[in-house]
Nucleic acid binder design. Structure first.
Lengths: 346, 346
DNA sequence: CTGAAAGCGCTTACAG
DNA sequence: CTGAAAGCGCTTACAG
């Protein structure tokens, strides 16, 4: 905060102009239309000119202290190294700068104690509101935060009783099922993600329900929880294949992973077991991250509007901060078919 | 900043205890050893007890205003959706919270005007220092920032005249070359990254130099610049293959991509052209991101200590802020061999 | 050992 | 149209 040359203050501007600091402050805040109340237009022009020349930037700590508004937003995500969350955060940041807010992000690794402690740190910084990208579906912790009167919005994952911006994950699961059923698959498996995340829960539910409508059952042992990353997808797939070997019966001809990275891990594991993705076994992922199209076997994936989710999340939070209401939103996913499920798709 | 229930202030603590606010402040800051000067130990105990009970958290805006220190650090990265930068940022955040600093991150997409404007925004927030993960190798912009007296450290990329924490990229390039030469490859190509990033420049230089030592020349048209992502790697590979077709002569038997994502794009393109990665053509990446090992054809990669780079970067910045000197560091990379270059590696 | 005062840089009713 | 004052919540020499 002491970057070499001393910062320009209102007082310095006032001294040089022979005006009172309060006049300078008013002039700098005057909207073009309501300019008449602040100062004469000539004075306003002089003040603004000098402020520009000296590069005046209001000290945000002083402003925050005085106005009781920090224009700061705290963002919690499981991990920024997850492309899904990073992309969502880019949307949040973009929307924040459009409305003059700054954001703190922090990684909680989905660990409840870390969620707690980082929330306290963020609140200690006197943010105006928060965005949670790491909600547990039960929402117990969030109930406490809400009770403290902190405005917040959930993104990516929903939780009972709180406002969220999510992908319509249930629909996304249905789209995946429809696609695979249409290709004639009847022996299906799901790599379902973490049990506490609504994303995995809803995508799995949509998938299973749509299958049931077609008279196809996805047996419980074919639905395996997993971390939302490549190693997680690999492990889940090993579990899946091992249980098939143990029980006998037909191996799954198609695998739906609720996340692209888990899908990539699944592709690796399937290949290790001599099964060729796209021809021997179909794989469908979720999110349509930028990697999906570029893989050696391009990955069929349900695209979720991650960037947009971040943007809307911030905009809703901004409404809340302004004292307006905000309602949950579900954005529509789109299926993109590629060679991992349909060799004809190139 | 108005989360429902009013925040506890020093004044509230002082009133309840019948003490002066300055006494409360001193007591709360007293180190256990130098406690005698602050207040009697009985008083200190009373004060701390009440502070704990009421959950007192100092208002950081007031503290910053008074102390002229914000304990805030600004971090600029090209994009957080690049796993390399995201992992580095996790290291920065971790180290920051260990020393009581908070961080702002922002994406500049390697666009100079965005770097400028975001730097100004960050500085307007009165940060105590900055970390740049998006340095251009020429360092012109950074010279200006340095001239303004802002303490900062570069991570990932170096730039002439500024302190940086990088991977020893030159050595990394040499390791990649040594590996491929040892496998008998003589027709080599490089996907070299962006021309303004020292990472790509140094990795390429190390690779080319090591080849030269073995009497192997990497022709200029076999060194292709690229974006640091999968689409970039795919495009660069297409360029490479097209130029080979045009000129005739042997196609490259091995490709070194200065980034794992570019390598993934390269693998996709090679496969599209009917070349099997691992057997027909070797591919080596850089960074050893968590995806490398999980790909259908696991990727040989030079591991760079991304997390550690972030940690050290913040620690050096903290030294600078404390008025101490800081010297550039280069962390050592390690080659991990996998099937993309050596089928025997499984 | 504790209190009183000044001041960090700003905003905002209130005068005049 | 402009000025003067109060105060946001804290820290820190300085008294006593």
């Amino acid at each position: 905060m002491d970057p070499g040359r001393p910062q320009v203050t209102l007082q310095m501007l006032a001294d040089r102009l022979g005006l009172h600091i309060s006049t300078v402050s008013r002039a700098l805040h005057a909207k073009p239309d309501e300019g008449r109340r602040a100062a004469s237009s000539a004075t306003i022009a002089r003040i603004r000119k000098l402020a520009d020349e000296l590069g005046y930037r209001p000290n945000p700590h002083a402003t925050s202290l005085r106005t009781q508004r920090s224009n700061l937003v705290g963002v919690l995500v499981p991990r920024l190294s997850d492309l899904v969350l990073a992309t969502m955060y880019e949307g949040i940041e973009e929307a924040a700068s459009e409305v003059g807010l700054s954001t703190f992000v922090t990684n909680t690794r989905d660990v409840p104690e870390v969620q707690r402690s980082h929330t306290e740190m963020v609140l200690a910084r006197r943010v105006d509101g928060m965005i949670f990208g790491d909600a547990y579906v039960d929402g117990g912790f969030l109930d406490e935060i809400a009770a403290r009167g902190v405005p917040f919005i959930l993104v990516s994952r929903r939780a009972a009783g709180h406002t969220s911006v999510t992908c319509d994950d249930y629909l996304g699961g249905r789209l995946a099922a429809e696609h695979l059923l249409g290709l004639g698959h009847r022996h299906l498996a799901v790599i379902a993600g973490e049990p506490y995340a609504s994303t995995g829960i809803d995508r799995t539910a949509g998938f299973v329900d749509r299958c049931a409508e077609e008279g196809v059952t996805v047996p419980a042992e074919r639905i395996v929880h997993s971390a939302f990353d490549a190693p997680g997808g690999r492990r889940a797939t090993e579990t899946l294949l091992a249980s098939t070997n143990r029980r006998g019966g037909p191996a799954p001809s198609a695998v739906f992973a609720v996340n692209d990275f888990a899908a990539i891990g699944a592709m690796g594991a399937l290949r290790d077991h001599g099964r060729r993705v796209g021809s021997d076994v179909a794989v469908v992922g979720f999110n349509d991250t930028s990697l999906a199209a570029e893989l050696p076997v391009p990955l069929t994936s349900v695209r979720s509007p991650m960037h947009q989710m971040g943007r809307r999340g911030l905009q809703l939070l901004n409404q809340l901060i302004a004292g307006q209401a905000a309602e949950s939103e579900r954005l529509t996913p789109v299926l993109t078919v590629r060679a991992s499920s349909d060799p004809a798709a190139g």
